[in-house]
Design a protein around this nucleic acid. Structure first.
Lengths: 236, 236
DNA sequence: GTCACTTAATGACCATCAGTCATTTTAATT
DNA sequence: AATTAAAATGACTGATGGTCATTAAGTGAC
């Protein structure tokens, strides 16, 4: 039925419209400080309507989180289309992640919120949380693929278990990006300020450290001088 | 005046009593779900009294955060009393951190909350936040000291800037501990579950990676086989 | 064209909770 | 015993997440 289709489209459009409004409000002042009424007003709808589309405030924020992780994963997926060695892919994944955090601090903050949620039932019952989880899984799989490619093309030391190593690099990268995020949003971080640490050199050193740790001798030179291709990580 | 002293002691004792109650409640069900009335009841005081000792809920949670970071830093400080090489110290710092997160997930969660706060003014105006910041600074300084010791005793490659490297290892360690925390509290983490990743092996691989990256050849053997001394990280 | 019915939207209303403040209680001092 | 200062109280307020009875719009059968 054409009418059914149109209705479904309109419903989806309204959902997106609410999400757009919610992002605008929440990215501007944080979830804690954002009210549902304010979001409703920005979306030019009544508060009750918001609850027809999202079970509650957390669910709405989880939907935003999913949007962010979709965007990020799209960026990751794109680099596998190109012709890169394994070790190059590792570097690119890191660069994309860092770029993403810089361009989309609001989404990154949503990621952090998602990870700090501890009501397991709430997470298991949420479609959005499930998607986020699938995306995280996929992201780590990208990392595994990059490592496997590297172990085959001889650019990455194959004495590691690629799965373990993927999770490891993923986690560490996460730590680095968190610091980068904190600097970016002006979070008071005395140690960084006093030492005049720049995010870029931090990341370069990270790559150097990881590179030295996992690259084969042959790949090391190439790793150190890899081009820093810019990848678009903002949403369209 | 003796009476003045006694009063000051009593006031401090009451403050601690409130914090004890607050920890019990908040560690049990998270800040979001904990109410000030509940905390007051647990402390056997009225709600108004809580506000005589803490400006607001955030400030109370920041005080708890400070407690946690004090405990953690004490643990770090202790290892420098012993006789360790630089590279051993790096391993120990990591082990202590991981132990701390396992034994005190509530404090770690408080750290995460602290780091996700973005009202800069609120942070700058809080005595507690200042202490947390000083502690973080000190912790990174411990790391720097360990690296410098290692560069002097020849166990750590001295081609890195110790400050940069310290922040780097600190950040990565933070990422690893976050994953460990998430596993510990049962946060749904599909990727980890599916791959059957164990926190311990993750950490060992992390040490291996970092070790390979920063250790001198001479130190590598020793690094790989360092004893896993248990350090007490729970509060007394 | 109209009427019955379904779906979407509304906003007044409710419950909860952070934070306040006038009042009371307790302790110290004279 | 009276006075004063400090500590504690809990009723109260305002804000906000979430609900639900009611209204409005759209649809299709006749």
């Amino acid at each position: 039925m054409g009418i059914e289709d149109r209705k479904a489209r309109e419903k989806e459009k309204r959902r997106e419209q609410i999400l757009d409004a919610a992002e605008e409000v929440i990215f501007g002042k944080g979830i804690e400080q954002s009210t549902m009424s304010e979001i409703a007003e920005k979306a030019e709808l009544s508060k009750g309507t918001i609850y027809l589309y999202f079970k509650n405030k957390n669910e709405l924020y989880l939907a935003i989180t999913q949007r962010g992780s979709d965007i990020l994963n799209d960026c990751f997926a794109r680099i596998f289309a190109g012709d890169h060695t394994g070790i190059e892919l590792i570097r690119l994944i890191g660069e994309i992640y860092l770029d993403f955090v810089r361009s989309n601090p609001g989404y990154f903050k949503a990621f952090q919120f998602y990870e700090s949620m501890n009501d397991v039932d709430e997470l298991r019952n949420s479609e959005y949380a499930q998607c986020c989880e699938d995306n995280r899984c996929e992201a780590i799989n990208f990392m595994i693929r990059a490592l496997q490619i590297g172990m085959q093309d001889g650019t990455i030391d194959d004495s590691y278990d690629p799965k373990e190593l993927a999770v490891l690099i993923w986690s560490s990268t996460r730590g680095i990006t968190t610091v980068s995020y904190m600097k970016g949003v002006g979070h008071y971080f005395k140690a960084l300020d006093e030492m005049e640490i720049k995010t870029d050199s931090l990341f370069e050193n990270f790559l150097k450290l990881v590179g030295t740790g996992i690259a084969t001798e042959k790949a090391r030179k190439q790793w150190m001088t890899a081009s820093h291709k810019k990848i678009e990580t903002t949403k369209d």
